[in-house]
Design a binder for these strands. Structure first.
Lengths: 191, 191
DNA sequence: ACCTGAACACCGTTCAAGT
DNA sequence: ACCTGAACACCGTTCAAGT
């Protein structure tokens, strides 16, 4: 099942021509490489690094946001999947804290992703990236409220928007300290 | 004393030529007009609407952010100044809530301002816009903690970063509801 | 001292032409 | 079916030339 951000009929990857498959991989690799160094690289720069024409880039990812989402889709999914082992290893509230901390570390590294996640709510590009995060968060919140550690009926969307503050701290030592304090404040509000 | 975002020696407004003074006002008026409709208007569009060359725009405001900060400087200052009457009219915690609510309403209207405020922390453009907000918030927090309504030693910068979530909600009915919930969560965390 | 606006080096995106 | 890359309509910013 090929990933389809919108409702469009997307061919199965196997049905694509081999050069198209190769280009797609090259684009993702180039984008990953360049974006991790500098979140503002141009689409043309990505196309160039990938060794394809700009038209090809846009044939695969019809917008910048779509490229970013696709790029981090797997990583995000993997982080979402850590919920189980966290819940097994520690009590729910601690799991929630660790999971949110790691999400922040992660989105601070992948610069563009944070805002893409927040904006995903508005733009209904939901299914691939936003929804897994919400689902994972939802499970953590339920576990914690079942254990009586936080209030019930707390919406995951609200928490995600709040922790957005964590990836807006400056990228230095003081910023990391601040992120800790912010998470303390947020979690205290949930109790 | 002329507003000086950086350390540069800025002439007293009176020492500027009359046409320069007029242009500055025209630029601010045009920017206010266009930015309130659409936060992404180009600098050239602002210059054109103001009836000046683009070079003139950059002579007065050497960067886009500087223009935005200057633009809302007075409004922000006025909102910061409401702290006194709020503290007189109601108990500290309620005052804090109302003030933050209004700040959110305000920054949701003036689209660009919210992020400019948050980024101001990094970029040390502090004195004119960021600092008054921090000072006002600081007084509200102190009043509330003196009254035993919130914890002591809560940093205004942390609260400002958290309430940043409030101006990232979608601009519709559901978004307003969400903003209320978010403020509840934040304030609960301070207690 | 200040203004003008053409010009520069970009940007994201498109599309005719090729294979 | 897919790719290429010149071209388009922008962008923020600069700077020689004017007053």
């Amino acid at each position: 099942m090929s990933s389809t951000l919108r409702g469009e009929k997307t061919l199965n990857p196997k049905d694509q021509r081999v050069d198209a498959q190769h280009n797609r991989v090259a684009i993702l690799a180039a984008a990953h490489d360049l974006l991790s160094k500098n979140e503002t690289v141009s689409m043309n720069a990505i196309a160039k690094k990938a060794g394809v024409g700009s038209g090809t880039l846009y044939r695969h990812f019809s917008t910048r946001e779509e490229l970013i989402l696709e790029l981090y889709c797997h990583d995000v999914q993997r982080h979402a999947d850590t919920v189980d082992q966290l819940l097994q290893a520690m009590e729910p509230l601690a799991a929630l804290r660790v999971w949110l901390e790691q999400l922040a570390v992660y989105t601070r590294m992948k610069h563009g992703l944070g805002d893409a996640l927040t904006k995903a709510a508005e733009r209904k590009v939901v299914q691939v990236t936003y929804q897994p995060v919400i689902d994972a968060l939802s499970r953590l919140l339920k576990a914690a409220s079942d254990a009586g550690q936080i209030q019930p009926n707390i919406l995951p969307d609200d928490v995600l928007l709040l922790v957005g503050a964590l990836w807006r701290v400056p990228r230095d030592q003081a910023g990391l300290k601040q992120a800790e304090r912010l998470l303390d404040l947020i979690l205290r509000g949930l109790c």
